[in-house]
Design a protein around this nucleic acid. Structure first.
Lengths: 209, 209
DNA sequence: TAGATTGTTAATCGATTAACAATC
DNA sequence: TAGATTGTTAATCGATTAACAATC
């Protein structure tokens, strides 16, 4: 039975399900039961079945789940086939690292272009992505209408840049600036990556034994 | 009343409390009540008071909390004054980005050294941190005994490297490799940074409006 | 068919919120 | 003192786990 309101707890487990299923898929595993998947992921079989039941019925009694199928279903739920197009703003080391190591295509994102201020970078290509001047940003976004922006820019320009991009139609931000962004606009989403939070969690754990 | 078992939900909110308090502190704010902090953070005052009560009594009736004091207390809880010493393994773009942009000192970590295979990098310094050859890793760790390692290395070497480092006494891993690491050793902690999870969460949100 | 495993309902557990006496 | 706000207990809400009929 599909649920209308999906809790954050469930949403945050979906990418992890996807990673595990993708891994099984790549290993050629054909079927898996909730209990054996739960064993691998260190969660209960009940939780997996409950989570999945929010979105539909993907298994078969006595058999379990077809790995390829469930992987595709969860991918679909996550919007991997949504044809997202993104731009990367800031091609410093972090932007560079993402362009070079992160497999955007694998999770359904096409990297349209990257932008930077540095003359040394403008015009170069990283992994087939051209780095353009920030001066071209407005015209580019207006013409090509990407829907997601990755922000790896200095803190002091983050909010004004975001506001401008929202006005031009960007709907999602993968935000590495450590500034909490905001907008009046509905249906705009910010996903903040706070490196410091995970390091502090680690610090907490090693500190109290 | 101090609690013995702190839930993950509470632990994961602590770094965010710290960020907000640090921000207030830097702005010169002297005192704050749970309700006004809750307003800023978009959580209830009750939750803040409940969370803090796990660790002690830091406020004063009729006044609220002294910002500098509470910031210091939470920093202490998080182990910011634990004198952690870390090494960065892999000085590619991501390692480089961390060395260049991430303020380790601010959260109580001293970066002892970085290691890489690339001859072009070995011997150079980034932000006062010397990049050494991977050949020196063993001897270095044995001699200087850092307690945390940042892993920004290729997936295929991640687990064996981790096992080796654990055997030499490393107790915490800030793991950017997207490989889930494991060990038999108790009191070793892994904090995995899965970039893809946050991007997929963003994808989910922009996909269903 | 018999065994396995699902989807779902019910029970439990834990986390969040509300309320309030204590007190600065 | 009066008002504000804490720390904590109790109430509520939601998430996780257990149980089981349905069925492949």
């Amino acid at each position: 039975m599909k649920k209308q309101k999906i809790s954050d707890a469930v949403i945050h487990r979906l990418p992890r399900y996807y990673r595990y299923l993708d891994d099984l898929y790549n290993k050629g595993v054909v079927r898996i039961s909730s209990s054996s998947l739960g064993g691998k992921m260190d969660i209960t079989a009940s939780q997996i079945r409950q989570d999945l039941s929010c979105f539909g019925e993907f298994g078969q009694q006595g058999y379990g789940y077809n790995v390829a199928e469930l992987r595709a279903e969860i991918g679909h739920i996550l919007g991997i086939d949504g044809g997202h197009r993104l731009i990367i703003i800031g091609a410093g080391h972090l932007g560079h690292a993402l362009l070079q190591n992160f497999d955007f295509a694998k999770v359904g994102f096409h990297v349209d272009s990257a932008f930077d201020l540095s003359p040394a970078l403008i015009g170069t290509k990283i992994h087939d992505v051209t780095i353009r001047s920030m001066d071209e940003l407005d015209a580019y976004v207006k013409e090509y209408q990407p829907n997601v922006a990755v922000l790896t820019v200095p803190q002091n320009v983050a909010q004004s840049l975001a506001s401008k991009l929202i006005a031009m139609g960007i709907r999602g931000f993968w935000n590495f600036t450590n500034v909490e962004l905001s907008t009046q606009e509905p249906d705009v989403f910010f996903e903040d990556v706070h490196f410091v939070d995970t390091l502090l969690t680690l610090s907490y754990r090693i500190t109290r034994k």
